[in-house]
Write a protein that binds this DNA or RNA. Structure first.
Lengths: 248, 248
DNA sequence: CCCCTCGATATGTCTGTACATGTTTGAGGG
DNA sequence: CCCTCAAACATGTACAGACATATCGAGGGG
């Protein structure tokens, strides 16, 4: 019949189908799925098979299940042992400081080559229309993080209607595009003139630079550059052993 | 709250039992497990239940399964999307440079308070007997990483018989204690006098400092401090979305 | 002697049934 | 009217049987 597709089993296909519905936003976080028996008949499989599907999706974190209540799409977040810094406000609060955010600059424009370089984007041809933002996260009265960000207006046009002097762009994006994937580059750099000035640091102070690229499907959503004073900040990463080449 | 143990189902207990055998080293990587049917009768369960156990262990990466051949304990490594730097040699090779390792210092002694501070160990009371090492990883002729390490001789006494001017301690430990867990702290620091000198950097250059604590069960195996010149090195981290509070 | 084919075998997948467990819901009693 | 308790219900777990599929190894043909 069909050529050799080793991973295309029945329950694999159903898992992908449901996962797509969640990732692509047709089923929003909190949405209740039909019950096991109903989904089973709808897909034309036994309940045990459907159970396997839903159990796996629950393990992967896409849904949560409660007895008698049913199965629900989970609250998503781009999470990791390393980078629980998606919400810098929470991070600052955890350190026992008061948090505030100040927007320095916000403009709609096309990405320039300089912007692309500043955000660590390599060799990108198209210069899309973006919302370009810069601002500072404060812990108490001290600058905690300098954020420079470009938001893709093709993907998130509603960003134009937001007032980012009030809402923090990172948090807002996380709530708006919950099922995005992220790629980070982490480096140590010496603070340059303007960066050092904005973070209230002596020139040359070591800083942790995080370049984050966020995608949904094949489209990029946002590029961000987060610059932390080196002494004031560290990332924590905890790892379990895994076999080589496994994806959790 | 409840003294009941909600997670203690049949297959959960079996999974833990087998996982322990692997993690504690009774079953080494490559070891072939008995076949499904045999394990099922041995544990007194149905084959479907045993299948669920082995499928889950395969998903977690502890075993690999091949039809007809059987089930085998996987090759373990402390792996993550972020920190594939367990083998610095491989990392250097991937960048297209030749790799070499130079041991600067090796001594058996008790950890001093200064050592503990240097390795980022907080408030540790016991000062255990360790093998204390320092050395440099080279990419071509350039220093690539300064490594300072303490190995717990209670846990790894065989480390004394090793010649670490030849073998790289990180790789050796990874092969010797395959199923350890790791915790990393990542910071940016300005290179101090001696560190800067060893890495051939100007004083004050930004460096990426990684403090790694490796444990097996409840015992610590090794503390390591890896110092990378900031410009020459960066970590890459790629993340999928997950639900809040899930452990992969 | 080498290569190919063909069973034997272990895992992979799916189905149907049965009972357990934790929640919700609603009816009845204080 | 509120509280309590039990039935209803959705998921959780386990079992047994059946067929599919990939792979190893032995035996036969070139």
């Amino acid at each position: 019949m069909d050529s050799a597709r080793p991973t295309e089993t029945l329950h694999t296909k159903i898992i992908e189908d449901i996962r797509n519905k969640i990732v692509e936003g047709h089923w929003k976080p909190g949405h209740q799925l039909a019950k096991e028996t109903e989904l089973a008949t709808r897909y034309g499989v036994a309940r045990m098979t459907m159970n396997k599907v839903l159990t796996q999706l629950a393990q992967e974190g896409y849904v949560t299940r409660r007895k008698r209540s049913g199965t629900f799409v989970a609250q998503a977040r781009v999470q990791s042992a390393v980078l629980e810094i998606n919400n810098i406000g929470e991070e600052v609060a955890a350190l026992g400081h008061s948090y505030s955010w100040t927007l320095l600059n916000s403009e709609r424009r096309r990405m320039s080559q300089a912007d692309l370089r500043a955000l660590g984007v390599g060799r990108k041809v198209v210069e899309e229309e973006v919302l370009y933002l810069q601002g500072i996260h404060f812990a108490g009265n001290n600058p905690f993080c300098l954020e420079t960000r470009a938001i893709n207006l093709d993907v998130v046009p509603t960003a134009l209607q937001m007032n980012f002097s009030k809402d923090v762009p990172g948090s807002w994006l996380l709530n708006t595009m919950p099922w995005s994937t992220a790629r980070h580059q982490i480096r140590a750099v010496n603070a340059s003139g303007r960066d050092a000035q904005l973070l209230d640091l002596p020139t040359g102070a070591a800083c942790l630079e995080i370049l984050r690229k966020t995608k949904i499907g094949t489209n990029w959503v946002t590029y961000a550059r987060l610059l932390y004073p080196g002494e004031a900040h560290q990332l924590i990463a905890e790892f379990e052993p895994r076999a080589a080449g496994e994806a959790p």
